[in-house]
Design a protein around this nucleic acid. Structure first.
Lengths: 346, 346
DNA sequence: CTGAAAGCGCTTACAG
DNA sequence: CTGAAAGCGCTTACAG
């Protein structure tokens, strides 16, 4: 059996097969697999050649058991926008392709008081390799503390510097919002409204203050009665816009805190019998696929969500490889002018 | 140490802790965990009580190694519609919640000739508990054969009876398409176009033939020049509609094979300066979230995608539990009449 | 109905 | 630079 296996392997090869054929110990094979420097160059080459020849790949379950750490990367999200989630998934999968890591989905509800408890159970039980946290999950300090306590790697995607550079993907949401403001002011708008996301999302604040800053540069002020809070969802955007349309001063332009809400704004404007952009100009945020599918196509602030997901996963792989990282990875959004904005009719 | 652990466990409890405290062997604890009938009632109760008290849960990595099978459920998809994918994920996650199973994402490209090879590598390597296959991946016979050869459970979601009932979620796409036809005919349309999905998708055939059948009932025929193929994507839907609008006979109503393409149809109609539904009535298929976000809201054939995902995951859990299933699980779509359809102006 | 031993395929101190 | 032994936390025949 021992000898026969050298020629014909039943099933997949194991570390023992490699060791036997290479005439070294399993330990040495293990060292080669794990890129330990403590292996003689010649030995390493021989082992690698045999690994390649047999198409051997170490069993992830066995490694997980021995390392007390699985090869799962969890995406923990509570995003109300499905488009955001899909794009992020794509980016992460791009980075994880051809690695041993698998992406697992962990949607959570921050309104569920026990959501950190459920997550703790998940990490204790499945010992994920790492976690990726988009907003607003990324903004929960207690959660990150818990991950550190349990020694699990994570990357936070947020619009503020909440953590060490190696654990952060920083997005300059404020700058993107300021661009939206400059665009609308340049067109000549002065009665400008802003529908922002929920107070519980930090990026909602960033976008609002960036927008205000941009307006201020042009000498325009954001009136409180033209500033309304919504929930980053289609329905809440629609409702918020209806409130604005029937308020005492009707805006000629609206900046919605994300594309989902902007989509709701479209419907409210249409239902009121008004035209886009002639009667109302609309700007969104994110540039999710829906932006280009609307008619007229939505002018929006593009956040490269897929690339952000890719970068977050890369960061996790770097942490594992022990690569130190001093500079923070950051993304600055950029306005994409389409057809939903024009000069006001006056 | 041995004794101390009885009172204070460092880290999480293991099967050894349970066995020691219950004064039985690990094997007996293992039997209780795996619901073996070969345990005396009294013993089972004692062990279960201790498991509950310590909040013990068996380590998935260790079980995976011993069972040669992991606790991952893979979603293998090539759907061009992101909304479809998100809904399906939600349904699967609903069913997997509070189980040990994790959902992993395996997007594939059927145009990549080596895609079965990549999947084989995944199943050999990660030994997933089971796979869920929505269209069009579900329609690949060779793939299913490979899964059977490798002894991995799977569930196919398709519009035809391609497999054993225990491995199928059947959708009656043809019936849904027939409803769309009846709806348009009842409104008085006779010049009706159909933009169908790619020939490589079985459901595209089903929808087309069901639509034709529905039209035939009302004595309406589907003219070849009003039948065009597209790719189930927004862009392809837009292009297809433009071809129809500038063809020799302009339809008063269009049935698009999915909502994504219907969204493209909206834009083509708008760009041509025509109104919805006055000049052109539009019907979609799927009832993804975008249907309700369009203006006017899209009349579409609702396929309960989330529920289908849930049912597929349930089927997988049933297979694992050894539950035999004779009847097939099936879903019949239903038309949701919204605002994008009306009588032709004539 | 129950248990002692061996094994799943890796890695981790510990020696040398 | 390399190896023999023990261990990660489970399950699987095999006995009794």
């Amino acid at each position: 059996m021992q000898e026969a296996a050298e020629f014909k392997l039943q099933g997949r090869a194991t570390i023992n097969d490699i060791a036997r054929i290479a005439k070294v110990s399993k330990k040495t094979v293990s060292r080669v697999i794990n890129d330990s420097p403590l292996v003689k160059q010649r030995t390493r080459e021989v082992v690698k050649a045999i690994i390649a020849e047999l198409g051997y790949t170490p069993d992830p379950q066995a490694r997980a058991l021995a390392l007390r750490r699985s090869f799962l990367v969890g995406l923990v999200y509570d995003s109300p926008s499905p488009q955001y989630v899909v794009n992020m998934q794509r980016g992460i999968l791009d980075a994880l392709e051809d690695t041993d890591f698998q992406l697992v989905l962990r949607p959570v509800s921050r309104t569920d008081a026990n959501y950190p408890g459920r997550l703790r159970q998940f990490i204790q039980h499945h010992k994920p390799f790492g976690l990726i946290l988009p907003p607003s999950v990324s903004e929960d300090e207690e959660l990150s503390q818990m991950f550190r306590d349990h020694d699990v790697d994570y990357v936070r995607i947020a619009s503020g510097m909440l953590d060490a550079p190696a654990r952060m993907i920083l997005t300059h949401d404020g700058e993107g919002a300021a661009q939206a403001a400059r665009h609308l002011c340049a067109l000549g708008h002065t009665d400008i409204a802003h529908i922002h996301g929920p107070e519980s999302f930090r990026c909602a604040h960033e976008r609002r203050s960036g927008f205000q800053r941009g307006l201020a540069e042009a000498g325009v002020t954001l009136h409180p009665e033209l500033t309304v809070e919504a929930g980053y969802t289609f329905d809440s955007g629609l409702l918020a816009m209806e409130r604005l349309l029937y308020g005492k001063r009707r805006p000629t332009a609206v900046f919605a805190g994300n594309d989902e809400m902007a989509t709701g704004v479209y419907v409210a404007v249409r239902k009121a019998g008004l035209r886009i952009p002639e009667d109302v100009s609309i700007v969104g945020f994110d540039d999710t696929p829906i932006a280009g599918r609307l008619w007229p196509a939505l002018t929006t602030v593009r956040l490269p969500i897929r690339e952000m997901g890719h970068a977050a996963a890369r960061l996790l792989l770097d942490q594992a490889a022990g690569i130190e990282r001093e500079e923070v990875t950051s993304f600055t959004p950029e306005i994409i002018v389409r057809e939903s904005t024009a000069a006001p009719l006056r």
